[in-house]
């Protein structure tokens, strides 16, 4: 059968109950969706199916049919990133990167659906099934909110202020500082 991945029709021959995740990674070498838990619990494999975020590990090939599949490879390109990708880059919202593709796609779908600024609770709901084991959620949530407001790229990044030292730093003899 043919599978529409990132706007390109690709021939696939995996058996019908093969997960979309496995078809993408093993047969088509589209590697941004990650094998995490393989039971729908982590969100690392999330792709867009006709624009809606779905766990690719839970979708059998037979159920995909002629739906449009979008992965991070189809979201943007180096030098031409989608707003949510730019915001993740600007705001250090990726650490090890394993959850990032799923987070980006779920966030992108939320922003597209809302069509304007999203609030914190909406981000938390949309990403509630996405696990970041580096626990970098603060910057991820900030990046999604910023992307929804168009605060990407040239926008100056507001750095959180360092707390004022309440007393002079104590020099320790022999320390490399």
């Amino acid at each position: 059968m043919q599978l529409n991945v990132n706007g390109v029709s690709r021939a696939v021959s995996s058996p019908p109950l093969t997960s979309l995740l496995e078809v993408l990674r093993e047969e088509l070498a589209v590697l941004s969706p990650k094998h995490g838990c393989e039971q729908g619990g982590c969100g690392a494999c999330t792709v867009l199916v006709d624009g809606e975020p779905r766990r690719s590990c839970l979708l059998p090939l037979a159920a995909v049919g002629d739906a449009r599949i979008t992965t991070v490879e189809g979201l943007g390109a180096p030098g031409d990133l989608a707003p949510v990708q730019s915001a993740f880059h600007d705001r250090y919202a990726a650490q090890c990167g394993y959850c990032t593709s799923g987070m980006l796609l779920a966030a992108h779908a939320l922003i597209e659906r809302k069509g304007g600024p999203v609030d914190r609770d909406e981000v938390l709901d949309a990403l509630s099934g996405h696990v970041c084991r580096c626990t970098g959620y603060v910057k991820i949530v900030e990046a999604v909110m910023a992307a929804s407001r168009g605060q990407v790229g040239a926008e100056p990044i507001e750095q959180p202020l360092a707390p004022e030292p309440s007393q002079p730093e104590i020099e320790i003899a022999g320390s490399p500082a």
């Binding site: 729908g40 969100g43 999330t46 809606e52 975020p53 779905r54 766990r55 839970l58 979708l59 779920a106 709901d125 949309a126 509630s128 099934g129 996405h130």
Partner: peptide, 9 residues
């Protein structure tokens, strides 16, 4: 139940 992606499936 679960999260929006699971509920949609």
């Amino acid at each position: 139940v679960a999260d929006p992606e699971i509920r949609a499936q």
